[in-house]
Amino acid sequence: MTWFRALLAAGLSVIMPGAGHVLVRDWLRAAVFAGLFFIASALFLPIDQIAAAGPITSYDGVLEQATIMAEETDAMAQFLLSFIALFAAIDATVRALGYPPGSDTKTEGLMCPECGKEIDGDLEFCHWCTTRLDPESADEETRQA
């Protein structure tokens, strides 16, 4: 299930940077990647020419706007937008697999089986990702630590 979630997060981030982070409930990173992508799009895409082509009402309208974007956008802008999408996909994949940045493998408390963050043993759920914790899994986590 974790690999499926990671691949889904990566795919969503390629389509729209930040969407994969929404899947893994990392709201701040989702906002940062989506904002970065929208700002870069506004700065580098020929929005005035795309808007002049008119609204998309058919398949031909989609092709016309895609052709304008491909022909009027320089290679550096295409590289920048692709880089943002790729970086967002890699980051969402790593976050979905449960490797939070700056964490070490030696933790003294209980770990959430879903997000991998340290949790309070008195709670019945993870206060980070809201995953319900079974008493049996909490005992198993204690034995593994």
Rank of each mutant, 00 (worst) to 15 (best):
L110H: 09
G11W: 04
V24S: 02
L36W: 09
E141V: 06
G20T: 01
C129P: 00
V24E: 00
G11C: 03
A10T: 06
F83R: 05
D48Q: 13
A19T: 05
M111E: 12
Q49K: 14
S137M: 14
L123T: 10
E71F: 02
T105P: 13
T130Y: 13
G11T: 01
A34V: 06
L36I: 08
E124M: 10
S13R: 02
S13H: 03
D134Q: 12
L36D: 04
A30F: 03
F125R: 13
R5Y: 05
A51E: 14
R132S: 15
A19R: 05
D104M: 11
M111Q: 14
E108V: 11
D134N: 12
F79G: 12
A9T: 01
Q78W: 11
L63I: 06
G98V: 02
C115M: 07
I119N: 05
F33E: 00
L63H: 10
E64Y: 10
S58W: 02
T105Q: 15
A40C: 08
Q144E: 13
D74V: 03
I84C: 00
S82P: 04
F4W: 09
R132Y: 10
E124R: 13
A30R: 02
I39Q: 03
G121K: 02
D26P: 07
Q144I: 13
G109R: 14
A77S: 11
A30L: 01
L23Y: 05
L97W: 03
G109N: 13
E136T: 09
D60F: 07
F125K: 13
L8A: 10
M111A: 11
